[in-house]
Amino acid sequence: MACWAYLRPTLFSIVAVLCFLHLFLSYRSDIQYPNFGIYAGSFCPAFLCAEKAQTNESNPDNSTEIQAASMDAESDTLLLIWMWPFGFKFDLNCNSFNMSRCRMTDDKSLYHKAHGLLFHHRDINGQLSNMPKLPRLTFQKWVWFNMESPANSFPIPGLNRVFNLTCNYRLDSDIPVPYGYLEPVTSEDESFKLPAKDKLVCWIVSNWNPNHRRVQFYNELRKHVEVHTYGRAFGKPLSDQEYQNTVLSCKFYLSFENSNSRDYITEKLYSPMKIGSVPIALGPSRQMYEGHIPADSFIHVDDFSTAKKLAQRLLYLDQNPAEYMQFFNWKSLFKVKHTYFGRDHACKTCKYLQNHRGYHAVNDLNGWYWG
């Protein structure tokens, strides 16, 4: 009896605990509590989330961070602008791209939530000390962005196997963003009218290098036809309005690129086309230009064996307006659109991330671009 009196309180306590556990485990048994792995961003206790956020802000390169932003098709896409290109800040708004659920930020404390990071090549230092530390978060894509030709930007050895995607003017980049492009005209667009012109050939240039092919070609061309020259290279800098008025007054414009690189076709071509002057192209091959604009919308210097023969053709077209006007046939079908530097690259990157969830990597960036 003494033993029973001793054990009775203990047994009562055990039964009470078992009843409590039964009630607890059977209540809302439909709830599934996720493991604290990559899903912890969508469910975690307040104390853990607070501690996690504090850790992120103090160490954005913490590779052990819970990867909260695993690519959920229903969530907004977050693009982190890791560095402003040349320090130039642009509008973080993609409304003109007819896309939604895309957020862009330069807040590096959101590193562990960003689906993509955008890096501008010319702002990456050679030691990569202004880059986040490798390895990349598994769900995250790092995007290399550069609009300078290989001749005007230089490879950084440590960048191989760093990026997932490329964003560049080249048509074979993952996210191609040319300097300009043609899109169909609409009923709201005004019909083209050729502006009055009092000059045959013009050239506006700032960067003068006697070793550049464009300078050498110009020096030969001007022996056979007058070329009206402007820009800092000739001590005649122009404002934006002066530039437009000048190009308007010229029948032909020397759209001479400073280097010959694949798909490197800049505003030097698209601006005269938009304003109403016929570009004379020097840069990549004619075939490459024809991948961007109609074959009969421009003249290429390689169409002629010598600068003298090009000059003779220009003088002939000056006296034959019907043939000259054929260079503008494309105007009835297309209009020129310029790329907005920075913003368009970021918006197109965000859209790409939304539509391409699979894994991708760029293992030989330097070989692809500078090889």
Rank of each mutant, 00 (worst) to 15 (best):
L221S: 01
T186P: 03
P210G: 01
P195G: 03
L25T: 09
L182D: 00
Q312H: 08
K52V: 13
S259E: 02
P294G: 02
A295Q: 06
G291D: 13
G231Y: 10
F328L: 00
Y289F: 08
A322R: 12
S129D: 12
T246R: 07
T64K: 06
Y352R: 04
F217K: 07
C350F: 01
T186Q: 13
R286C: 00
G116T: 14
Q140K: 03
E57P: 04
N95W: 10
A53P: 05
G358L: 05
H120C: 00
I175Q: 05
G342M: 01
Y316M: 05
E188P: 09
W82K: 04
F24M: 09
L310K: 08
A68G: 10
H300L: 11
D107K: 13
S149E: 10
K331Q: 01
P294A: 02
F217E: 04
P294D: 07
F47R: 07
F24L: 14
Y369A: 13
D61R: 10
M273N: 14
D318H: 13
R214S: 00
K348N: 12
V162K: 09
G371R: 12
K197D: 09
S259R: 01
N130H: 14
H22A: 13
C167T: 05
N164D: 14
E290K: 06
D240G: 05
C19N: 01
L365F: 06
A346T: 06
W368A: 12
Y264E: 04
A5W: 05
C94Y: 01
F341H: 15
K308E: 15
A281D: 02
Q127Y: 12
Y39T: 04
F341R: 15
A68E: 12
A40K: 08
V201K: 06
Y340W: 04
P279Q: 00
F252M: 02
S149M: 12
N164L: 15
V336C: 04
L238Y: 00
H360T: 11
F43G: 00
N355A: 02
Q312S: 05
S191K: 11
P9Q: 01
R213S: 14
E148R: 14
F234C: 09
Y253Q: 02
V177G: 09
F86A: 02
F298D: 07
Y169M: 03
F234I: 07
P132Q: 13
M131E: 01
R213F: 10
R103K: 07
N125E: 13
M288I: 13
W82H: 03
L48T: 06
Y230V: 00
D198R: 10
Q244G: 11
I14F: 09
H212N: 08
T306A: 08
L23D: 02
V185S: 00
N59C: 10
R357I: 07
L118C: 01
P155N: 09
G371M: 08
N125S: 03
E267L: 08
S13N: 06
C19A: 15
E226N: 11
D344A: 14
D364K: 14
Q244V: 15
A73V: 15
C347P: 01
P157D: 09
V15Q: 04
H228C: 00
D30N: 14
A114W: 06
F88R: 04
V215M: 14
I275M: 06
A233T: 12
K133T: 07
E257M: 06
H22N: 05
E148Q: 05
A69T: 04
G180T: 08
Q326E: 13
S206W: 09
L310W: 10
E323Q: 02
V215K: 02
